[in-house]
């Protein structure tokens, strides 16, 4: 690939360039948000977790976490199970099958897109500096 060809954007770019940006354009925006991505990642590696655990691990405030979880719940990515442990209410969060699939798909898509992105070489860089 010529040096000037790998910095083209989606407009006027070649077919492979368009494919890269297509991957990025098609990213699931709900998963792409950093706080929600963290929540999904932690739920992906555990069977289930409660609000406090997720807040401690992600560093989000409980209020912030609650609002992101609501969005994920609405999308059907996260299941919220409420129960009682003795007299204490206990809320467990679990990734649903669509949520698991969405996270896995997001990972694949972003990995592919990042792998195919042009090297960090702008139009001002000479080939010898790369």
């Amino acid at each position: 690939m010529p040096a000037d060809a790998d910095v083209r954007g989606p407009v006027g770019g070649d077919a492979s360039g368009e494919a890269v940006f297509e991957e990025l354009r098609d990213l699931d925006r709900l998963v792409h948000e950093p706080a929600r991505l963290m929540i999904l990642a932690y739920l992906f590696v555990t069977d289930s977790a409660d609000f406090v655990f997720l807040a401690r691990q992600t560093g989000l405030t409980l209020g912030n976490l609650s609002s992101h979880v609501s969005k994920l719940e609405e999308a059907g990515y996260v299941e919220v199970q409420k129960s009682f442990k003795g007299k204490r209410p206990n809320t467990q969060l679990r990734l649903t099958e669509p949520g698991r699939k969405a996270f896995a798909e997001y990972r694949e898509r972003i990995e592919r897109a990042l792998r195919d992105l042009p090297e960090i070489a702008g139009p001002h860089d000479s080939p010898t500096r790369r």
């Binding site: 932690y42 590696v45 555990t46 069977d47 289930s48 977790a49 409660d50 609000f51 406090v52 655990f53 997720l54 807040a55 401690r56 467990q92």
Partner: peptide, 11 residues
């Protein structure tokens, strides 16, 4: 546990 929360880990 009330400070850290609880998670159930995979099998």
């Amino acid at each position: 546990l009330p400070r850290t929360g609880v998670a159930r880990f995979a099998a």
